[in-house]
Design a protein around this nucleic acid. Structure first.
Lengths: 123, 123
DNA sequence: CATCACGGTATCCTTTTTGATACTATAGGC
DNA sequence: GCCTATAGTATCAAAAAGGATACCGTGATG
């Protein structure tokens, strides 16, 4: 993630794959991006959508996404504060990824987590 | 990852997205899957492809992928040992995701890591 | 008998990541 | 003057994840 987690950008083939996940890697990033696909959202609005994300983590993830250029933060000089988050051009370009993830998830997660194919004994 | 990292399978919309990344989240998982797309590979073969992955981590990631049903491990009763890893049906079904990641990565990572759009000052 | 290859393990330690909780500023409303 | 809402911060602590290093069994080879 914005840090160093996946940092092999020195690229054996497959590197670009890593580079890409590096950006959506973080406990809440992908969902944040996913939700922002439906439009601009305010901080607490996102918070309510995701629920059980602490403000600390939400801020943290949003800032990293912003640093990575995937989202845009628009601050209104008001009180109480108003801050809007939206996907940047680059963020919007990740749609295929988010879609692929969603499609796969919808198709393979049996609503209980973990993909289906677990009929081979191991817990 | 095979653990608990992304565990919100109780699903607000977007959950399936999380569920999906949960499986490829892990420092080496996506690249492993990516490499396995070109066919069966032995342990040290993968190790050589990825390089600078320690055997500990490689084993670890492979086991988690196996637990999640994405890859298959075939052990030959020989000495020296021979173990082959390959994508399972489920693993193969992730191709669109890996592809989307790769395409995006190839298009947006300027070979130095980090997507392009960083002309706004921050390092 | 010593060495090599293969596919790992075992241990220990550091770094990252996440969580819990409490707290802040400020304008407007009552 | 007090309370409310928004968008955060600050601090501390716990838990994961990852890295470094050394070691294992064994059959074939020299």
């Amino acid at each position: 993630m914005a840090k160093v987690r996946h940092s092999r950008f020195d690229c054996t083939p497959g590197c670009s794959v890593e580079a890409a996940i590096a950006l959506i890697d973080g406990k809440w990033k992908a969902i944040i991006l996913f939700h922002l696909q439906s439009g601009t959202m305010r901080f607490n609005e996102i918070r309510r959508q995701i629920e059980n994300v602490t403000p600390r983590m939400l801020t943290n993830q949003l800032r990293e996404l912003e640093e990575d250029g995937l989202i845009t933060r628009k601050i209104y000089a008001q009180v109480p504060p108003k801050v809007e988050y939206s996907l940047s051009e680059l963020g919007r370009s990740m749609e295929p990824i988010l879609m692929a993830l969603k499609v796969w998830g919808d198709a393979n997660i049996g609503l209980y987590g973990k993909p289906e194919v677990r009929n081979h004994g191991a817990a």
